[in-house]
Design a protein around this nucleic acid. Structure first.
Lengths: 328, 328
DNA sequence: AATCAACATGTAATCGATTACATTTAGTGA
DNA sequence: TCACTAAATGTAATCGATTACATGTTGATT
């Protein structure tokens, strides 16, 4: 692979001139430019990002940290990030941590080592202490999951309010025994959604029973199935369920359908409005987050932060999407 | 951020010695090593990958190209790749091309520019000419989708045979009017799966009718729904459907259920065995590919190729998973 | 023709590491 | 104590770009 020296030699100019042509910066004669361009074509030259980045201390690469791409929730967010980043000549790299700290470290190092200019973390399992350390010297944005009272800018929705509205919807439909399928409450969103759930129940003087609150290990379908099976075995069966993720809700639907006999069907509300949620039978009532917009704004925030601007956190609006799973 | 010079100065040694400590290479006195390590800790030094990579011409980063992470099919493959890569001290970067050539270019350049050591492409929409060009000078492996008679090593399953078996399964169940929901036949896998479909039909003297072959734009659920709606409008309705992807098959199931009246249910077979396929109602009969293994082997092939070894293409075994969607 | 501005181009330092080769130091035996 | 060897450390070139500064060239003005 040719380097800038060889181009300079071939074109009979200095490396500085070649660099000028590449960055179409200051004055270069059309003739000289032409000579250089010819040389570049003939030698199929491609400038080395390593040399360039080393000198410039920038890579125009953004890291996007996520625990696992298997949750479709991230799809649209990523699209939003990518669209906005590309428009400003940045590129993104998706980094799946699989919730493993070692992997996290590797990606953090990429930033410290100038291989990437900043990070958008969507990983609720991220080691917050390390991320905060990183954020002291490098641009970091939190997307969706965030740290209450922390110093890293974030973009998210109001999980407590959304959960409250979801549960209120179930109450308005006449349900009095409402279960919660939650994930691990070490995650902020899980605590907030539980708080919203409890607020709605309290407001209507409905019982909050531990028996009706199930915590799953992660957000895979199977855990939704398991959770629902457990709930169906409680002494007083719940008549409705709020799950903190569509994936869990879909698992719950499966368990309900699979039960065979459905004397009085159980209403289900999910969270995220993943594309699959309109493919289930029944289709799933859920909370929709403006995912594309969230990603897009997160990218803007990060690029502004890289520029050196101060950025403010943002809370976006959500929406309750009513579908068949709460229509009896 | 400190650099190697500052460490050397602080520790009272030369940069060479610091480098030796970092790479725990040739002889360094325990005392000297200690001094350097102290300095590294005090200044919170992290070596720059840029400097290192520029000099070494390696990044220990692997690129994984995929059209979109929204197809869950890729999940397990990526896990396989990642597991194997990490074991050998390589890291992976997921690159979503969204089937857009501009993005592809960016990622190809990362390889040309030594920002990554090689590529695993799972993108059927990739520009093969460009990829072949890249492969002349850089390690490239194709995973799942490949080029017949091409020179780039690949790992895949026998799509033609799998499709043949899927359709044969439908025939054995007594179906005589079998539709195909295919994606664009510019993709090799689409052509192969169609060939398998036709081989099975011919073998049993069943009609191949254009009316029963639908081509979708992409693999989103919605297109499966659309396809099935069209098929249900044909003069002679098919009694069974083979879809070349689970996502399409799930869409088809949705269209069938959504039709309300199901006089004689339509059997459906998908392809890929994504995790959703056991969550649908009915659960989906499908072809299972050994995805984790495929990813793992692909990573091995790529790392061997980087080492300079010749690598051979691999065809893995698949399996027909029979579930409710073909059980009447 | 001399002067000078404006523009084009070249020279060489620089980014942060690695490493071949040179040099110093320590240790051994006579 | 001296010579010699092996181990430890240092010096400086190198990877491939960018860019401040120096130099050269051109043409206009007087």
């Amino acid at each position: 692979m040719a380097n800038i020296q060889q181009i300079a030699q071939k074109a009979g100019v200095s490396v500085a001139t070649v660099s000028r042509v590449l960055n179409n910066a200051t004055s270069v004669t059309p003739q000289t430019r032409h000579k250089v361009e010819i040389a570049i074509k003939e030698l199929k030259y491609e400038p080395s990002m390593l040399g360039r980045n080393l000198r410039n201390s920038e890579s125009r690469l953004l890291l996007v940290l996520l625990p696992s791409i298997s949750n479709p929730f991230y799809n649209e967010i990523i699209n939003g990030i990518q669209n906005t980043a590309i428009a400003k000549n940045y590129n993104i790299l998706l980094c799946e941590t699989d919730s493993k700290p070692e992997r996290e470290n590797i990606y953090f190092n990429m930033v410290k080592n100038k291989l990437a200019d900043g990070v958008i973390s969507m990983d609720p399992t991220v080691n917050m202490q390390k991320l905060n350390e990183l954020a002291e010297n490098h641009p970091v944005i939190l997307c969706s999951e965030y740290e209450e009272g922390g110093s890293i800018p974030y973009i998210t929705v109001d999980s407590e309010l959304a959960a409250y509205q979801a549960v209120k919807h179930l109450i308005k439909l006449g349900n009095e025994r409402i279960a919660l399928i939650n994930s691990d409450e070490k995650f902020l969103y899980a605590r907030l959604r539980r708080a919203g759930y409890e607020r709605a129940l309290k407001e209507f003087n409905l019982p909050i029973r531990d028996e009706w609150i199930y915590h799953t290990k992660d957000l895979e379908f199977e855990h939704g199935v398991q959770a629902m099976r457990m709930l169906l075995q409680s002494e007083e069966k719940p008549t409705a369920v709020f799950a903190v993720s569509d994936t869990l809700a879909i698992g719950a639907l499966k368990a309900i359908n699979g039960g065979g006999d459905t004397p009085n069907p159980i209403a289900v509300v999910g969270f995220d409005n993943i594309s699959f949620s309109s493919m289930t039978n029944p289709t799933l009532t859920t909370i929709s987050q403006p995912m594309f917009k969230m990603g897009s704004l997160a990218a803007d925030m990060l690029m502004n932060s890289i520029k050196g601007d101060r950025v403010e956190s943002i809370v976006l609006d959500h929406e309750l999407i009513i579908r068949e799973s709460t229509m009896g």
